[in-house]
Design a protein around this nucleic acid. Structure first.
Length: 271
DNA sequence: CGAGCAACCTGCATGC
DNA sequence: TGCATGCAGGTTGCTC
């Protein structure tokens, strides 16, 4: 599921239900995720109160007075807040139960996600400290992006998916942003004009902001915090539309592989 | 520095 | 109906 808009939608969905709540119990049915679940989540978290739910890149950061729970949803993860007495279904690996009998339940069929604990400042965490700017912040702009693009000899699609350059641009929105800015996904980053790179920065911000507004574009197994399926795939111009007509010029959309990831583009509109 | 790939997993669509 | 194959929204970390 998770592109950045889904993670942000999840954050907004769960925050009102967990902030200020005291954790009374943690149940781990399956500790084997991408990395084993940090033991502190079972031993230290119960008794602590959730202060804030933040997000950095696609990491959800659940802050307490003694440390931060770092959650990544991987490819197929989801979180929802439910009554604690509802029986877990398949692949629902972790419950964090609060003092009001509500439960933050983590589901992840493919188990590519993670739940980690850190007691030191979050900026020092190995997974967080080298991350590039947030795409929707002022820190990601042409002044920041242009010199990086000009110094890199990689396909532009790989560049915008590189978390050192900008975080949160996943495989769906990389294709979509390049379509919106008229750039061929294989074009070398250092071979794109300043004007077009400026358009790309704007397109990345636009497409992500728009998706967040819609509550998250997603594929089939996204379940939001209310338990409703999110399915807004029809808003996509190129992703998943191989051989279908371009929404702009009717030319059939092409599908190629860049960096082992499926990539979609219009051969007419994108150069 | 950059490219390629293996790894971590299950579910689903497709084709025989 | 059953089985093999390939593919899927992410990210790290290794080799060449």
């Amino acid at each position: 599921m998770p592109e950045l808009p889904e993670v942000e939608t999840t954050r907004r969905g769960i925050a009102p239900h967990v902030e200020g709540k005291k954790v009374i119990k943690v149940i781990v049915r399956q500790p084997k995720l991408r990395w084993p679940i940090s033991p502190e989540i079972s031993t230290l978290l119960p008794g602590l109160t959730i202060k804030r739910v933040k997000r950095r890149a696609k990491y959800l950061l659940i802050e307490t007075e003694k440390g931060t729970l770092i959650i990544h949803l991987g490819m197929s993860g989801s979180l929802r807040v439910i009554n604690a007495n509802i029986l877990p279904e398949k692949h629902e690996h972790i419950d964090i139960i609060f003092n009001d009998n509500k439960c933050l339940r983590y589901k992840d069929p493919r188990r590519f996600g993670c739940l980690l604990w850190t007691s030191t400042p979050i900026q020092q965490h190995k997974l967080i400290q080298h991350l590039g700017p947030e795409p929707l912040s002022d820190a990601f702009d042409l002044a920041n992006f242009y010199p990086k693009a000009k110094s890199k000899k990689v396909a532009i699609k790989r560049l915008i998916m590189d978390g050192h350059i900008v975080v949160g641009v996943g495989n769906i929105y990389a294709s979509e942003a390049l379509f919106l800015s008229g750039i061929h996904p294989k074009r070398t980053a250092n071979n794109i004009s300043k004007t077009r790179l400026s358009n790309l920065v704007i397109a990345i911000k636009d497409i992500l902001a728009q998706a967040i507004e819609q509550g998250g574009t997603t594929l089939k197994d996204f379940v939001n915090s209310e338990g409703k399926p999110g399915y807004f795939q029809q808003t996509l111009n190129v992703y998943g539309r191989a051989k279908q007509p371009c929404t702009h010029c009717k030319t059939p959309i092409k599908q190629i592989v860049i960096g082992q990831r499926s990539t979609f583009y219009c051969p007419q509109c994108q150069r």
